[in-house]
């Protein structure tokens, strides 16, 4: 081992580790939040990751085709090819239908909010080791995406852009403790804000803090963004109140809410790049 520490290999290893340390430092202080190495590599990796997503989708389609054709063989051999063709068409139809439904929802949101500017993004990577379900989109600063841009699905708030590289961006979901959203409950109009804790997020809950001690908010109430702060537009749905509890201090209450959509099942989202009341800061 002595030879290693006195040789050229050690110097090369030390140089690489120092460079990576500097990259971490630059990333920590930069506005984009992305490592410079990741930013440069996003030019190569994002198209490759897009391709991998499409290959993965194509393979899952092929698998469905294969399994079904096997079972069909036993039953009606003469209709096998025709049936499989129809099955493939159905898969295509279902996919297109799903996409169309999503776009119809977005169109509705756009009609209700003509001030919104959207960029559509596809989820290309999911960090399964992240506690709060962060994911990466195939759009980045080249598409007008910036840090803190709100991410929505239909009229539901999903999260916020946490870091941007030229060709991709990473999104923190509402379950991330770094995100707190100013909100209100639509029936009572009571102001509140969302928070997240590891234990609650593991059970699929967000914490609704800032409620009065004897709050009129009850289970089933819908919580929307208030628009205060200028990061999130007003009236995006955050979730539904499931439970109201008293705070340990006894001076206030808090609620447990669940988002309307399952973030782990999303494949396409929209990033809002501009809206009325957006903060310039």
């Amino acid at each position: 081992m002595k030879n290693f520490f006195s040789g050229t290999k050690f110097r090369i290893c030390a140089a690489i580790l120092t460079a990576m340390f500097l990259a971490v430092f630059i990333s920590a202080v930069s506005e984009s939040g992305a490592s410079p190495v990741s930013s440069v590599l996003s030019y190569i990796l994002t198209p490759a990751e897009n391709l991998a997503v499409h290959i993965s989708d194509a393979l899952s389609d092929f698998n469905g085709y294969f399994v079904s054709s096997k079972s069909m063989e036993k039953q009606i051999e003469e209709l096998e090819s025709e049936l499989n063709e129809l099955r493939l068409q159905t898969v295509d139809y279902e996919k297109t239908k799903h996409k169309l439904e999503a776009y119809e929802d977005f169109l509705g949101v756009k009609e209700d909010n003509p001030d919104f500017s959207f960029v559509a993004g596809e989820i290309i990577l999911r960090d399964t080791s992240d506690f709060y379900g962060s994911f990466t989109l195939n759009i980045g600063s080249d598409d007008g995406i910036f840090v803190n841009a709100p991410v929505i699905y239909s009229d539901n708030l999903v999260g916020v852009v946490a870091s941007v590289s030229p060709k991709s961006c990473t999104v923190h979901t509402l379950f991330n403790p770094e995100i707190s959203v100013s909100a209100y409950e639509i029936r009572t109009r009571e102001s509140c804000y969302t928070e997240s804790e590891y234990a609650l997020s593991a059970e699929g809950f967000l914490k609704l803090s800032g409620l009065k001690k004897n709050t009129p908010v009850v289970s089933g109430g819908i919580v929307c963004t208030s628009g205060i702060g200028g990061i999130y537009p007003k009236d995006l749905i955050i979730g539904t109140v499931r439970e109201i509890r008293n705070d340990v201090t006894g001076l206030s209450s808090f609620g447990l809410i669940t988002p309307e959509i399952d973030y782990s099942k999303l494949s396409d989202v929209f990033v809002i790049t501009d809206f009325e009341g957006k903060s310039d800061g």
Partner: peptide, 19 residues
């Protein structure tokens, strides 16, 4: 570096820790 492209919220730490 690959891990950081999927998780850049960790400030590129994987590209330092894993090597």
């Amino acid at each position: 570096i690959l891990w950081d492209t999927a998780s850049p919220v960790t400030d590129g730490l994987y590209a330092l820790i894993l090597p």
